[in-house]
Design a protein around this nucleic acid. Structure first.
Length: 768
DNA sequence: CTAGGGTTAG
C-alpha cells in the first residue's frame, strides 16, 4: 500500500515501472569466454576432477603455483583452470578472493566484473562487496551499475544494504542519463519496498542532489520521518553545491527548529553559505550561536568564519579572528589574501602571502588573481612565473586567472605564449579556458585569433557568446556583434545582463541609436532582464554620443533607483563633446554630490566652460578643485616591445632608458610640428603658463610609451599601447599624426575599446 | 566528510 502511494505520488506511472529495466541493461560487457581466449594457460589434465560438494577447500588443486592467488596473472590462470575443468561453481570462490584484494587497478575492475557476471551463484554478501568495490573506484560507476543490472537478471535478492552503495555509483552518473538512472534506482527502491528506510532515503536524496536534481532531493528529504544529522547535512550541502545559498540558510533554520544540534560539518557549510550571499547578519548570528552554545571552534570553523567575514566586507573582524589563530592555517591565510585583494589592499594581501610557510596551488592562484583583478597584470604574471619556478603546476582555475591577467595587460606576445602554454599542458578544449582565451585575444588586439578559437569551439555557453560579442564591440564591429547575437539566439542560448552590456556597448560605439533603443526594450520585455546601472550607463552613453542629450537626461530621471557616477559621468562627457553648458553644470553638480573627489568631473566641467569662453568659470572650477585638494589621477600606460611589457606613468623617469625616451619624444614632437601639430592644452587643469602647459601635456604616459615603442621598433611591426584610463584629446591627435608622419600602425587600447591608427586615421568613431 | 582560488561587464 505504501509502495503504491509513493509510486503514484512521486513518479508518473510511465517512468516508474516501464523504463527502469531498459537503462540499467545498457551497462553490459562482452561475454567472458571471448576474453578468456587470450589468456595463456598451462595444459590441463584431461581427466577432470569430480565437482566438489562445497566450493571452498579443494581449490588449491586447481591453482598453478600458490594456495592463494596474489596477482592478476595467477587469477587468470586459476580462472582458466576453473573454466576448462567445468567447475564453474568455483567462480564464487575466485570472485570472493578477487574482491578481497586491497585496490584493484582499473583493468582488473573489468576482470572482476566479467567474473561477477558469469558466476552461477551470487549471494547478497558477495554482491554487496562487488558493488562496494566498483562504487569506490574513481571509474567504477558504470561497472557498479552493470553489476547491479546483472544481479537483477539473475534474480539475486536485493537487500536494503545494497542501495546506499548502488546510489553512490548512481550519484556520479552525469548528463541526461544521470537523471534517468537515479529515477530508475528510486523506482526499484519503491518497488522492492524500502521507501522509508532512512539510510536509503538519505542516499537517494544525496544522489539526486549530486546530479543537481535538487527539487527531487528535497521531495525525498521531506518524506523522511526520521531525519538524522547526515540527512540534514546531505540536503544542506545539496543546496549549497547548487549555489542556492538562501535555501541553505532557510533549511538550516528548519533544522534548528527541529531541535537538532548542528555539528561542525553543518556549521562550516552554513557559515560559508553566509559568506557567499554576503549575509553578514545571518553569519554573525551563527557565530554568536556557536560561542554561546560553547561548541568547539575547530580549525575548520575558524577558517570558515574568517572567510565569511572577508566575503562580507568585514575584513577587520576577519583580521581579529585571524590574529587569534595559532598557528595560522593555510585555508585561513588564503581567505585573508583574497579578502584584502578584494578591497584593493593588495600589498597587505601580499604581505600575508609572503609570510605563509607552506604554499599550495590554491593560495598561489588566489594571489595571482588578486593582482589580475587589481589592475596589476604584470605582477600577476611575474608571480605566475615564480610559481612555476617553485615547481608547482597550474590547474584550470590558475590558468583562468593568468589568462585574465594577460587580457588586462593586452600584450599580444604574452597572449600567444600563454595560449601555447595552455595547449601544451592539456587545457585546450576546456570551455572556461577557451572563453578566457577569446577574451584575452580580443583584448590584446587580435580579433582574428579570438574569432578562430570561437569558431572552433565544440561547445559554447552564454559566456562564450558574450565574450565574442563584446570583443567585436570593442573593435568597433557593431554590426557583426548584432549579427552574432542573432546567431546566438538561433542556437537557443539565452542572453544575460552581461550580454546586453556588450550589445548596448556595440550600438553606442557604432552610432546605432535605433538598434540600441530596441535592444534595451527587448532586454526588459522579451528577456525579462531588469536593467541595472551598467545598462543605463550604456544607454546614456549611446544617446549622449548621438547628441540626444535631453533624452539621455530624461532616461536618468526615469531610473527606478538613484543614478550613480557612471550615468552622470557619461552625460557630462557627452555635454562636453556637444558643448551643452546648462546640462553639463547639472551633471557635474550631481556627480560631485556623489563623489566630491571625482577628478573627471572638474576636468570635464572646466573644459565645457573653456569651450564656451567662460574663463571666469574655468578659474572658479580650478579654485574649487584646489580648495578640495583634488588632483588629476596620473595616467598609466603600457607598451610591449619584443615580448616585454614596459610601464609608464605621467612624467615618468624611472625607466632605465629614460634619457633615450625623452630624446625620441623631442624628435617626434619636432617632426609633428612640421606637420602642423600644436599641443591642445584644454585638458591641463593646473594653473600654469601656456608654455608650461605645453610641456606638461607632452609628458602624458601614452606619449612616453609611444616614444619608447618607436625606439625599439623593428621594421614592419606595429606598436601596441595599453592605457588604463580614457585617452585625452591631445594624445589621440598626437598618436594619429605619429602614425602618419612615421608610417606606422599604432594600436591603442584604452579602458573600453581599441583605436587602430594608420596613415593619420583612427578606426574609432568617437568625437575628438 | 567539512574550510581557501576561476572565465564575460562595471
Amino acid at each position: 500500500m505504501a509502495i503504491k502511494l509513493s509510486l503514484t505520488n512521486f513518479f508518473t506511472t510511465s517512468n516508474a515501472g516501464i523504463t527502469f529495466p531498459l537503462l540499467l541493461n545498457h551497462f553490459v560487457l562482452p561475454p567472458i569466454r571471448r576474453k578468456m581466449q587470450t589468456v595463456n594457460s598451462p595444459p590441463l589434465p584431461t581427466t577432470s576432477l569430480p565437482p566438489p560438494a562445497v566450493a571452498d577447500h579443494r581449490h588449491h588443486l586447481l591453482l598453478p603455483t600458490a594456495a592463494s592467488p596474489t596477482n592478476i596473472h595467477q587469477f587468470k590462470q586459476l580462472h582458466a583452470n576453473i573454466l576448462r575443468s567445468g567447475h564453474e561453481h568455483s567462480l564464487s570462490f575466485l570472485l570472493s578472493k578477487l574482491l578481497s584484494l586491497p585496490f584493484p587497478s582499473p583493468p582488473s575492475l573489468d576482470y572482476i566484473l566479467a567474473v561477477f557476471l558469469h558466476s552461477p551463484h551470487l549471494d547478497p554478501r558477495i554482491c554487496h562487496r562487488a558493488l562496494r568495490t566498483f562504487s569506490r573506484a574513481a571509474d567504477g560507476t558504470h561497472r557498479a551499475l552493470t553489476a547491479y543490472a546483472g544481479m537483477r537478471r539473475f534474480d539475486v535478492e536485493v537487500d536494503r544494504f545494497m542501495f546506499p552503495t548502488l546510489l553512490r555509483a548512481a550519484a556520479r552518473v552525469s548528463g541526461g542519463d544521470g537523471g534517468l538512472v537515479r529515477r530508475e534506482v528510486h523506482g526499484i527502491v519503491l518497488k522492492l519496498g524500502f521507501p522509508s528506510d532512512p539510510f536509503i532515503q538519505t542516499a537517494l536524496a544525496g544522489a539526486y542532489a549530486a546530479g543537481g536534481m535538487i527539487e527531487d532531493a528535497r521531495k525525498v528529504f521531506d518524506r523522511m520521518l526520521h531525519k538524522d544529522m547526515i540527512a540534514w547535512n546531505v540536503m544542506l550541502d545539496g543546496y549549497y553545491q547548487a549555489g542556492q545559498y538562501n535555501d541553505t540558510l532557510m533549511l538550516f533554520e528548519d533544522m534548528r527548529n527541529s531541535g537538532l544540534i548542528p555539528n561542525n560539518v553543518v556549521l562550516s557549510t552554513i557559515i560559508t553559505a553566509c559568506g557567499r550571499t554576503g549575509n553578514l547578519a545571518f553569519g554573525k548570528e551563527v557565530h554568536s550561536y556557536i560561542v554561546e552554545s560553547k561548541i568547539l571552534i575547530d580549525e575548520h570553523i575558524q577558517s570558515a568564519l574568517i572567510a565569511m567575514y572577508c566575503n562580507c566586507n568585514s575584513i577587520r573582524t576577519a583580521q581579529n579572528l585571524y590574529d587569534q589563530m595559532s598557528p595560522k592555517n593555510l585555508v585561513a591565510s588564503t581567505a585573508m589574501v583574497v579578502g584584502y585583494s578584494k578591497i584593493g589592499k593588495i600589498e597587505i594581501a601580499r604581505y600575508i602571502f609572503n609570510r605563509m610557510r607552506e604554499k599550495d596551488l590554491i593560495c598561489w592562484s588566489a594571489m595571482i588573481s588578486g593582482y589580475a583583478e587589481s589592475e596589476r597584470p604584470g605582477e600577476a604574471l611575474r608571480l605566475f612565473n615564480s610559481m612555476l619556478a617553485s615547481g608547482m603546476s597550474p590547474d584550470k582555475i590558475t590558468m583562468l586567472s593568468v589568462i585574465s591577467a594577460c587580457a588586462h595587460l593586452g600584450a599580444i606576445d604574452l597572449a600567444k605564449w600563454i595560449h601555447i602554454y595552455a595547449d601544451k599542458n592539456g587545457f585546450r578544449g576546456s570551455l572556461s579556458v577557451d572563453n578566457a582565451l577569446i577574451d584575452m585575444y580580443s583584448k590584446s588586439g587580435s580579433l582574428t585569433m579570438a574569432r578562430t578559437i570561437f569558431e572552433k569551439q565544440p561547445e559554447r555557453n552564454v559566456i562564450t557568446w558574450t565574450t565574442m560579442i563584446t570583443g567585436l564591440a570593442m573593435h568597433g564591429e557593431g554590426r557583426s556583434a548584432l549579427e552574432l547575437f542573432n546567431e546566438m539566439k538561433a542556437m537557443g542560448v539565452e542572453p544575460n545582463g552581461v550580454t546586453f552590456v556588450g550589445l548596448l556597448y556595440a550600438c553606442s560605439h557604432s552610432g546605432m541609436v535605433e538598434e540600441g533603443r530596441h535592444m534595451f526594450k527587448s532586454m526588459i520585455f522579451e528577456h525579462k532582464i531588469e536593467p541595472k546601472h551598467e545598462h543605463y550607463g550604456c544607454m546614456v552613453d549611446l544617446l549622449g554620443r548621438a547628441k540626444l542629450l535631453q533624452e539621455a537626461h530624461e532616461l536618468i530621471d526615469s531610473m527606478p533607483f538613484p543614478p550613480n557616477v557612471v550615468e552622470w559621468g557619461s552625460l557630462l562627457w557627452a555635454c562636453q563633446n556637444h558643448g551643452n553648458v546648462v546640462l553639463g553644470e547639472l551633471a557635474a553638480r550631481k556627480l560631485l554630490e556623489l563623489d566630491s573627489g571625482h577628478d573627471g568631473a572638474y576636468v570635464l566641467l572646466s573644459n565645457i566652460y573653456a569651450k564656451a569662453n567662460r574663463w571666469e568659470k574655468v578659474e572658479e572650477v580650478r579654485r574649487l578643485m584646489k580648495g578640495r585638494a583634488v588632483s588629476k589621477e596620473k595616467g598609466c600606460s603600457w607598451v610591449e616591445v619584443d615580448g616585454e611589457v614596459h610601464e609608464f606613468l605621467m612624467g615618468d623617469e624611472c625607466h632605465s632608458r629614460s634619457s633615450e625616451i625623452y630624446r625620441k619624444l623631442d624628435e617626434i614632437v619636432k617632426a609633428l610640428e612640421v606637420a602642423g601639430y600644436s599641443p591642445d592644452v584644454g585638458s591641463v587643469l593646473i594653473n600654469l603658463e601656456e608654455d608650461e602647459k605645453k610641456a606638461a601635456i607632452l609628458l602624458h604616459s601614452e606619449k612616453l610609451a609611444l616614444s619608447f615603442g618607436l625606439i625599439g621598433l623593428t621594421p614592419g611591426s606595429c606598436i601596441r599601447i595599453a592605457k588604463n584610463l580614457r585617452v585625452c584629446r591631445d594624445c589621440h591627435s598626437f598618436i594619429k599624426l605619429t602614425s602618419m608622419v612615421f608610417k606606422r600602425e599604432i594600436i591603442l587600447r584604452d579602458r573600453t575599446r581599441f583605436h587602430r591608427f594608420m596613415d593619420g586615421n583612427c578606426s574609432c568613431k568617437d568625437f575628438w
